[in-house]
Computed example of a mutant assay.
Amino acid sequence: MKEKLQQIGELLEELKNNKPEEIQAFLNFLQRAEKDSAISAKNKELINVALAVAAQCEWCIAFHTKNAIQLGASKDEILDAGFQAVLMHGGPALMYMIPLLDAIKEFSNEG
């Protein structure tokens, strides 16, 4: 999963070089949307985990699982979020619990 995060970083660098205004606008929106507000930043990351599983995006799973753990989310909270995606998206989302579990294991051991 760390490789997925590295790939995200490489993509962002490439886009900063080729489409700086567009990627900066997206990154500004991302930063603003993920701040504490009516919903806490931790709960927003749990929502993002569920959406990442439903969207079947391993990069998004890695990114948002790491963020959720950094914000204090437990393994059970993250798995519950993943199961909300399974509830709404079915069997294909269930298979994306595999990279979700991988991300939890990898990022929980970073200490």
Rank of each mutant, 00 (worst) to 15 (best):
M1V: 08
E77G: 02
K2N: 13
A33Q: 05
E3L: 08
L71P: 08
R32N: 11
K35Y: 01
M88K: 11
L71C: 02
K4Y: 10
L46Y: 11
I23W: 02
N17C: 02
S74L: 00
Q70E: 15
E58Q: 11
A73R: 12
E77R: 06
V49Y: 08
I61M: 03
I23H: 03
S40Q: 04
S74V: 00
G90V: 10
I47D: 01
A25H: 12
D36G: 08
A62D: 06
F63I: 11
Q84C: 03
L12T: 07
G90N: 09
E34T: 15
K66E: 15
G72W: 05
I78C: 02
F26G: 06
S74T: 14
L87K: 13
S74W: 06
A55P: 03
L71R: 10
K75H: 13
F63S: 14
A38E: 07
N43L: 13
Q70A: 10
I39R: 04
N17V: 02
K42S: 13
F26D: 04
A25R: 03
K16R: 15
S74G: 03
E45T: 05
I69G: 03
L12I: 14
Q84M: 13
S37F: 03
E13L: 13
I61T: 10
E34K: 09
M1Q: 02
Q6I: 00
I78W: 01
A52I: 09
F26W: 13
Q7C: 01
F83Q: 05
T65Y: 10
N28C: 00
H89D: 07
A50N: 12
K35A: 08
A33W: 00
N28P: 00
D76M: 08
Q56G: 13
L5K: 05
F83H: 07
F83S: 00
Q24R: 06
K4H: 07
D80T: 04
L5M: 14
K35E: 13
S37K: 05
F83E: 07
E77Y: 06
A38M: 11
D80A: 14
E21W: 10
A25D: 07
C60N: 12
A54H: 12
F63H: 13
K44L: 09
V49H: 12
F29I: 08
M88D: 06
S40C: 02
Q84P: 00
Q6Y: 06
V49Q: 14
A62V: 07
A54R: 11
N28R: 10
A85P: 06
